[in-house]
Amino acid sequence: MVNLRDFDLNLLVIFTNIMEHRSISKAANELGLSPSAVSHALGRLRDMLNDQLFYRTAKGLEPTERARDILGQVEHGLSHLSNAISAQQQFVPGESNRVFSMQIANYLSGFFLPGFTHRIREEAPNITIDILPFSISADSVWDRVDVQIRLTPGRLKPKAVRSKRLMADDVVVLMRPDHPRAGDPMTAELYARLPHVKLSQASTGTTVIDDALAQRGLKRHSALIVSSWDTIPDLLLTTDLIAIAPRHLLALDPRLKALKSAPLPLEEVVFSFDLCWDRRSETDSGHQWLCQTVIDVFHAQIKPAQTNRP
């Protein structure tokens, strides 16, 4: 075991910057140090870890296998220390220049982000919100993501994280008004038989629809799989494809007013949306502010839509 009394933790900060920039000079510029100081620090770290850590190539510095192996653990440790220190400092939104990272369920980003951005620009104009894709590995997500607005199939709450239920919503089937089957009752059999456009599993993180159909001995025809909800309403208006969506989107996305909707004939399927975060962050006053802002903006935009539900 390394004796931490003899270990300079600043070396780890320098290490992560070199990993990010793959350059001594760029890391030095980022840290406000001279290139010689960064080179000296790297030499000390090499001695302590008994590994070269980086080697020079025509494209810049390349990490060794040892450097790649320890990167996640180093970032995790530094993040934990940063959160512990930040928790003792009062967060002032109007004065902060922090960077917060978020993941947002694909169904929600289109209606949530404009109001959220307006609120952020008013209260904390110098902070940055970094929206990350849900494709980030679940094993390392909480070292990179401050909060998620996650689609949770059913009414169960997410496991292994702190969470707050934002909404549980019914699901509807959408098609164009003159679709050849628009006048037919929407049954599970008809729903499975019609060609679908659907969000990829990477975008939704769930197979709840296919699981519910499988329990009935059915399988749907996924004619088109896309990564973003934004393209789906326009596809429905110009093709014979069908799709599903949370019911509240009928009032929030103007394009859907031109479509025919029917309840999804899988009664057990509910889309729940949860605000999720790692318990290590919840004492951080900046994190608390971010979560409360998400809750306020979400409820301000959702309540009118729920009031006007068809």
Rank of each mutant, 00 (worst) to 15 (best):
S203K: 00
P263L: 15
T16M: 06
E95S: 15
R155K: 15
L218G: 11
A305R: 01
D240N: 15
Y107G: 00
L78I: 06
S36Q: 14
I295S: 00
E95R: 15
L49I: 06
D274S: 09
V147C: 04
A182D: 12
R279Q: 15
R176P: 04
Y55K: 04
T207K: 13
H248G: 02
N17P: 05
A84C: 10
P125H: 05
D169F: 05
P114M: 02
A258D: 07
E122Y: 14
L241C: 05
V173M: 13
Y107F: 13
A160C: 13
P63L: 07
P233Y: 06
D146Q: 12
R22S: 11
D230I: 09
R309K: 10
Q103A: 04
H221D: 13
P133T: 08
A245K: 01
H21D: 09
L78H: 02
L166S: 03
F54W: 08
P304S: 03
I24A: 02
G77M: 06
T283F: 15
T239S: 14
H179P: 07
V270A: 07
H76S: 07
V197F: 09
P233F: 01
Y107L: 05
V269S: 11
L11A: 05
H80L: 15
R176D: 06
K303I: 11
L78E: 01
K157L: 08
Q89E: 15
V270N: 04
Q90C: 08
R155V: 13
S222L: 01
E75Y: 02
L290W: 01
K303W: 12
H80N: 14
L12N: 08
V38D: 00
D69H: 08
P114Q: 09
A188S: 15
L71H: 08
A251H: 04
A202I: 10
F111T: 03
D240S: 09
D170E: 12
G154C: 05
T187M: 12
A251T: 07
R255H: 10
R5S: 14
F112V: 05
R98M: 14
G286E: 09
D184N: 15
